[in-house]
């Protein structure tokens, strides 16, 4: 008998009290919890909640995004910048940074030596201040947003949903998913929270709103 047969046999024997004709759907699961705990302004809530994790959040209109990105990269002293494949070229500012593309692909030593990574996100969650990466365009494989010590994530305002249930409904579980809520942190010493361990120790999030139409005076 294989271990599989043994374990499954034990489970079936242990569940002798479950009627043979019971199906999983016969076990009721109440779903009367809220779909979202967010108010109407999910963008403002997202910005507030991300900032609670000691991450920096900046909001800008689309036309101002490249300048904001340039300013943040400069402030953080980034020289070697990882840019995942598919990152929108129109958002990329000109500057003194050395752009590292993952065509090679980049080795772990190169990624570890890079100063930062500039990525997009798949979805963002307002209530929990979370960005979700799914290795899509502008995010790349998971290591790209992990090894560099600084992560600048660009989130379009229309990618921000209210809460966790709404976000999961938009995600494809077959893709590798990484939920990021602030910089890496630990509470392992006296349950005192310290930001910055193995994952990027600095997280900046740039929320890009659509350009407002110019008012005609």
């Amino acid at each position: 008998m294989t271990a599989r047969d043994i374990v499954l046999g034990r489970i079936r024997a242990a569940l002798a009290d479950v009627p043979d004709d019971e199906s999983p759907a016969d076990v009721p699961v109440p779903r009367d919890y809220l779909r979202s705990h967010a108010g109407p302004d999910v963008v403002a809530l997202f910005a507030e909640r991300v900032a609670d994790y000691q991450a920096r959040v900046v909001r800008t209109e689309a036309s101002g995004a490249p300048a904001e990105i340039a300013r943040m990269l400069t402030e953080r002293g980034v020289t070697d910048l990882v840019v995942p494949p598919g990152f929108p070229e129109e958002l990329l500012p000109a500057g003194p940074w050395n752009r590292l593309d993952d065509h090679g692909p980049l080795g772990v030593a190169e990624l570890d030596a890079a100063d930062g990574v500039l990525s997009t996100a798949a979805v963002a969650i307002a209530v929990t201040g979370t960005i979700v990466l799914d290795a899509g365009p502008g995010q790349g494989r998971r290591a790209l947003t992990l090894l560099p010590d600084y992560h600048l994530c660009v989130v379009r305002a229309d990618q921000i949903v209210g809460d966790v249930p709404e976000a999961l409904a938009l995600l494809d579980p077959v893709r590798p998913l990484t939920f990021v809520s602030g910089p890496s942190a630990t509470s392992d010493i006296e349950l005192d929270r310290v930001e910055g361990v193995h994952g990027p120790r600095t997280l900046d999030v740039l929320v890009v709103d659509r350009d407002q139409p110019q008012e005609v005076g």
Binding site: T130, P176, L177, F179, G182, P183, A185
Partner: peptide
């Protein structure tokens, strides 16, 4: 509200 990282594969 959420832990810093959740990985799913």
């Amino acid at each position: 509200r959420m832990n810093p990282y959740t990985s799913m594969w």
